[in-house]
């Protein structure tokens, strides 16, 4: 993802520049910008303009509705459970997949992607089929009087399922790129598994993990399809923010709908902003270190030459 963002600003390579006439290049850039404006900037603008169409007071009142506040609360709770769980499982899965060889490894790798390849509605339906009134575990659910489907646990389960690959994938990519040499070095120096993880692995993967967690959080708060199926749409109880947006919209309460939507949009923008800042910070630090190292090297190389000549 970062590669795409970074790539936009770069000049085309020389060969490409010779192939393209200025006219072609201009047209391509114009087309890309027009597409961006139509599909990204315009909707973004619409969300905020609709939310604030009747002024800031109306916007704030709409957000202060008890049902809306309940939706925000539920969304925070859901993300608050799903994200830490997926962070733990994601790290564990990435660790196992990158450090060990075992039977069924490629199957596990494929399974991790399952939540991405399945429609979110199906992901929600899975939990209804498992824990619903006619479900596989219906007897146990009734026996212990568990409330899973059409209740908060179902929403958390569905959200966790849908957002599982985000942390695992991101961390796995970083771990595979960095290899295990440092971990092995720590092992021969006498470090225990915990010491290796906290002193070596975690600092190594922290940026990848950070991206994974914020992407996971954004998706967890914004998930609609899977949550919609298991939620039951009980107002003030099992509605998350995206569901609340739909309900308000269907009731022609456009300002309130877009007010909640604007919060989710802000979250998305914030996520991208944090991600970009973190990337920038780490690349700046790398650049500074490289520059320092370079100036250091030049000095040591030049000195002896000055002596001999």
């Amino acid at each position: 993802m970062s590669g795409v963002v970074g790539g936009l600003g770069r000049r085309p390579e020389r060969g490409a520049a010779e192939l393209e006439t200025p006219l072609v290049r201009g047209l391509l850039i114009a087309a890309a910008l027009a597409f961006l404006a139509l599909f990204l900037v315009a909707p973004l603008f619409t969300v905020f303009s609709a939310a604030f169409s009747k002024g800031v007071d109306v916007y704030l009142t709409a957000l202060a509705e008890p049902e809306t506040l309940a939706a925000i609360e539920l969304t925070l709770i859901t993300a608050g459970i799903a994200v830490p769980m997926n962070t733990l499982f994601g790290i564990a899965a990435a660790w196992v997949l990158s450090k060990y060889d075992f039977r069924g490894k490629s199957a596990l790798l494929t399974l991790i992607d399952l939540p991405f390849s399945v429609s979110p509605v199906i992901s929600g339906l899975i939990f209804v089929l498992l824990f619903g009134a006619q479900g596989l575990f219906a007897a146990q659910v009734q026996e212990y009087d568990l409330k899973i489907v059409f209740a908060v646990p179902g929403i958390v389960l569905a959200t966790t399922f849908v957002t599982f690959p985000l942390v695992a994938r991101e961390v796995l990519a970083v771990m595979e790129a960095q290899g295990s040499d440092e971990e092995e070095a720590a092992l021969t120096l006498g470090a225990s598994l915990w010491q290796i993880f906290f002193k070596v692995t975690l600092p190594k993967i922290r940026w990848g993990l950070f991206y994974g967690v914020i992407l996971c959080n954004a998706r967890a708060m914004g998930e609609f399809g899977a949550v919609s199926v298991v939620s039951g749409h009980i107002r003030g109880e099992t509605n998350t923010m995206p569901l609340q947006v739909e309900i308000l919209y269907n009731e022609y309460n456009f300002v309130a709908a877009f007010a909640v939507a604007s919060l989710l949009t802000l979250l998305a923008l914030l996520t991208l902003g944090v991600k970009k800042t973190a990337e920038l910070a780490s690349s700046l630090r790398e650049a500074r270190r490289a520059r320092e190292a370079e100036s250091e090297l030049t000095v040591t190389v030049i000195e002896p030459r000055g002596v001999t000549s």
């Binding site: 290899g179 040499d181 440092e182 092995e184 070095a185 720590a186 092992l187 021969t188 120096l189 006498g190 470090a191 225990s192 002193k199 070596v200 600092p203 190594k204």
Partner: peptide, 19 residues
């Protein structure tokens, strides 16, 4: 276990802790 063998291992890739 390798952690109790008390060997010093040097890798071709250096494997220094980069952070």
């Amino acid at each position: 276990s390798p952690r109790e063998r008390n060997v010093g291992f040097v890798f071709q890739s250096y494997a220094l802790f980069r952070h």
